[in-house]
Amino acid sequence: METYYKPEDLPKFSKMSEGSPELWKKFSDWYGAVFQAGALSEREKALIALAVAHAVQCPYCIDAYTQESLSKGADLEQMTEAVHVASAIRGGASMVHGVQMKNVNSKLTM
C-alpha cells in the first residue's frame, strides 16, 4: 500500500454495507436524516461537518464537505471561518489543559 488515502476510495464508502447490511442501513438512514434542514439549515450543517472534518483531520470528509458546503450555498469566506472555528477549539482545548499543568505545578512546587 503506497498511500493510505486515495481519492478513488471515497466512492467505495457504501461498500461498508458488506458484512453488516442492517447496521449500514441504520447508519445511512440516520446520517441522511442528520443533514436534512431542521433547526439548522443544510448550509450550516455542511459547514459544521467541514469544521469537524478538519478537527478529526479526515481527508475524505474535507474533500466531501468542501464540495457539500459549496453546493449548499457557502462560499470560501464562510468555509475559512468554519476551519478557524475548528482550529480555535483544537488550540483552545490544548490551552485550557494548561490549567491541569498549573494544578500539578502548584501542588508540586513551593
Binding site: E42, R43, L70, S71, K72
Partner: peptide
C-alpha cells in the same frame, strides 16, 4: 437567479432564498 460559481450543483432554492 443564483448559479454556482464553479463545478458544483446549486443548493436548495428555498433555503438559499432565505439566505
Amino acid at each position: 437567479v443564483y448559479n454556482p460559481v464553479g463545478a458544483f450543483l446549486p443548493p436548495s432554492q428555498e433555503g438559499l432564498e432565505n439566505d
